[in-house]
């Protein structure tokens, strides 16, 4: 039982969880629609300068205003949201496949190999996701940022999956099942079906939230997306120079980023299985 289940126990809370998750999923769906229609919604292509007058305050014409180069912030934010959203999906998928699937598979490997893997990954888990991702980007290139964020987030998911799978494999019910000749494939199916059915949205939502934060931070620090394919982190970084006066080029991408992370966390029913 995860700690989240301790906190959210009882029928009323479990209904509430379903509602929260539904809100998060709808929000994420809404963002997905915006992303899909980004070329329609945005009046200008990504990075197009002099779309409007420079440093224009948000008004009816330019809902999110323009920056010093006359770029339309609404268009830029929509394009950047599309970049962040898609690279977040890639990163989350990598984190889940490398982390969760490998974690569950490692338990079924010979015991020593599994434990050795757990030890190695445990050492990687002693480093913050952000620094690990920076190392991967530094050793490869900027284009690898989504992969780097996914790989960097995978050790903690691996460790948790491994520990959970180990608990399941050593549980009484698994022992009884083996003692009555239930084949290993059936037990594996059990784990896949029940873990996926019970936890997939939670795990995916949390993985998406944490990889998106890592990706945006990478870009903000200069290790992620590069112009003209700016993501939200890079937009905030480039607006930072004079955001004390020109607040809108920084505020709107920041809000979009926060909303994206929030919807992912809501979709995970605000599950707090790991420290934020």
């Amino acid at each position: 039982m995860s700690a989240a289940e301790d906190i959210w126990s009882g029928p009323r809370e479990s209904r509430l969880r379903v509602v929260i998750s539904a809100i998060g999923l709808s929000g994420a769906g809404f963002i997905a629609v915006i992303v899909a229609l980004s070329d329609v919604i945005a009046r200008a292509p990504a990075g197009a300068v002099k779309v409007g007058p420079p440093s224009h305050v948000p008004d009816v014409m330019y809902a999110f205003g323009t920056d010093v180069l006359g770029r339309d912030i609404l268009s830029e934010t929509v394009h950047a949201l599309a970049v962040t959203f898609s690279s977040g999906l890639v990163a989350a998928a990598i984190a889940i496949v490398v982390g969760a699937v490998a974690g569950f598979a490692a338990v079924r490997a010979p015991l020593r190999l599994g434990v050795a893997l757990r030890g190695i990954v445990g050492v990687l888990g002693a480093l913050p996701v952000l620094l690990l991702a920076i190392v991967v980007v530094g050793l490869t290139s900027h284009e690898f940022a989504p992969i780097a964020a996914g790989l960097a987030a995978s050790p903690s998911i691996f460790n948790r999956s491994f520990d959970r799978a180990m608990r399941l494999a050593r549980s009484r019910h698994a022992e009884y099942a083996r003692a009555t000749g239930i084949p290993a494939s059936t037990l594996l199916r059990r784990d896949l079906v029940y873990e996926v059915r019970g936890n997939f949205i939670n795990v995916a939502g949390r993985a998406f939230a944490s990889t998106t934060i890592a990706l945006a931070t990478l870009s903000f620090l200069g290790f992620g997306a590069m112009p003209p394919h700016a993501d939200l982190g890079l937009m905030i970084a480039s607006a930072r120079a004079n955001y004390l006066e020109l607040w809108w080029p920084a505020l709107f991408p920041a809000l979009a980023l926060i909303l994206l992370i929030l919807f992912a966390r809501l979709a995970a029913a605000l599950d707090e299985g790991e420290p934020p």
């Binding site: 945006a216 931070t217 903000f220 920084a250 926060i258 929030l262």
Partner: peptide, 18 residues
């Protein structure tokens, strides 16, 4: 309490700039 995460959804660099 889990609603705290609404605040915690802010990445550190955004919070620092704010």
């Amino acid at each position: 309490a889990p609603l705290m995460q609404i605040i915690a959804a802010t990445p550190v660099f955004v919070a620092a700039l704010a």
